[in-house]
């Protein structure tokens, strides 16, 4: 069974990060949220494995700050 990759796996981290941020340029918060939702769905389908997705969801949740911060 496959597992969530938690080790670095992106070959160009800085490049990807810039592309991600740039893709939101000029979008309102609402548009950005909507864009992120699409991205999550597209990537989830690409991963395709429910167990891996469950791990990803858990990790995302786990790392949330306990108090709201901006």
């Amino acid at each position: 069974m496959s597992q969530l990759v938690e080790q670095p796996n992106l070959n160009d981290p800085d490049g990807f990060y810039q592309e991600l941020i740039d893709s939101h340029t000029g979008l309102s918060d609402a548009q950005s949220t909507s864009m992120n939702a699409r991205l999550v769905l597209i990537l989830a389908n690409h991963i395709g494995d429910r167990a891996v997705l469950a791990e990803a969801l858990a990790l995302a949740k786990e790392t949330m700050p306990t108090t709201e911060r901006s």
Binding site: T33, S34, A37, R38, L41, I42, N45
Partner: peptide, 23 residues
């Protein structure tokens, strides 16, 4: 609100991408 955002994202994607249709 978030549930609606995902719902609408699925519907928009469904028009172009087959993967979203089962959702």
């Amino acid at each position: 609100n978030m549930s609606r955002i995902f719902r609408n994202a699925v519907l928009d994607l469904a028009e172009k991408a087959a993967f979203a249709r089962p959702l």
